[in-house]
């Protein structure tokens, strides 16, 4: 990550304060790599984050302008910012699964509905991990966490045939993909497509949290075991096995197919303003 971090990241935030063995850095790197491969510069991007591990570990890492919302609200701030920033500025959000699919879901759905030009990377460590490890809305059924000591049995957004990306597809998102942290260049390619789309893009990226998820569900902080747990239960779309929880690849792509949120609003305002000036 050396050349990437030199170009794009702030020295003050390297190394990150994440636990050793945390997979968040792999997701973070994939995003920065995608930015690099698209030829974007520091000033082309405003970076927003949530709270939690996903948010706090990535906040203030980007050399350019950045902000962090309170829990679940960054999607609404980002939409207001989208309306008032020039269209060529990209807004990238790195957030947690609890933030996006729990407390912030209403704002996220409305971001999809309005097709706001945002690229949202949901860093899914399978629950609420910075608060010690409680189950969330994508936690696999049966998982032991601090708030599911008997195994998680609530319905969630990834159980019983549900898929959170399906919810967002029907809400109007124009680019959706799913990856796991170990997907490497495949994830980078999806993120690039997401950033390129002038509309709402979301990339769901599952990553290993050995400290709080692994230690409860697997009974060990062993990083390799936690990585295997995720890797063995993921497979590229079309190559799913019986135990596949995360089918990876592009889930939905209608990039540039419908007017973007701010573009639409500005076009209408301009029409009204001109009529009023006559």
């Amino acid at each position: 990550m050396d050349y990437l971090s030199k170009k794009y990241l702030r020295p003050r935030k390297i190394p990150s304060t994440a636990c050793s063995g945390c997979g968040l850095g792999m997701n973070h790197k994939a995003v920065v790599q995608a930015i690099y491969e698209l030829g974007l510069e520091v000033e082309d991007i405003v970076w927003g984050t949530s709270i939690g591990c996903a948010g706090r570990q990535t906040f203030g890492t980007w050399k350019g302008d950045g902000f962090a919302g309170t829990h679940g609200r960054v999607y609404a701030i980002a939409r207001g910012l989208r309306l008032t920033l020039p269209p060529e500025k990209k807004i990238i959000l790195t957030v947690g699964d609890g933030d996006a699919f729990g407390i912030g879901l209403l704002h996220l759905i409305h971001s999809a509905r309005s097709n706001a030009d945002l690229t949202i990377i949901v860093n899914d460590n399978l629950g609420y991990m910075s608060t010690g490890g409680q189950y969330g809305w994508t936690t696999p059924h049966g998982s032991k966490t601090d708030s599911s000591p008997y195994g998680m049995y609530e319905h969630n957004l990834m159980s019983d045939g549900m898929d959170v990306l399906g919810v967002l597809k029907h809400a109007g998102a124009t680019f959706l993909a799913r990856h796991v942290a170990m997907d490497g260049q495949r994830a980078v390619e999806s993120i690039k497509k997401g950033i390129r789309n002038r509309g709402l893009s979301l990339i769901h990226m599952v990553y290993p949290c050995p400290t709080n998820f692994g230690s409860r569900e697997l009974g060990t902080r062993d990083t390799i075991k936690m990585y295997d747990y995720i890797k063995s239960q993921s497979a590229p779309m079309g190559e799913e096995k019986e135990n596949t929880l995360w089918a990876t690849g592009i889930y939905h792509d209608t990039s540039d197919s419908r007017p973007e949120f701010s573009e639409n609003i500005h076009k209408n305002i301009e029409k009204i303003r001109r009529a009023a000036a006559v």
Binding site: R73, A78, G80, R82
Partner: peptide, 19 residues
């Protein structure tokens, strides 16, 4: 712009002000 609720409305204003 109409928010999905008041919490969103004031956050949208924050975003507007940040811009």
């Amino acid at each position: 712009i109409q928010g999905e609720d008041e919490c969103a409305a004031l956050h949208l204003c924050i975003g507007g002000a940040l811009g």
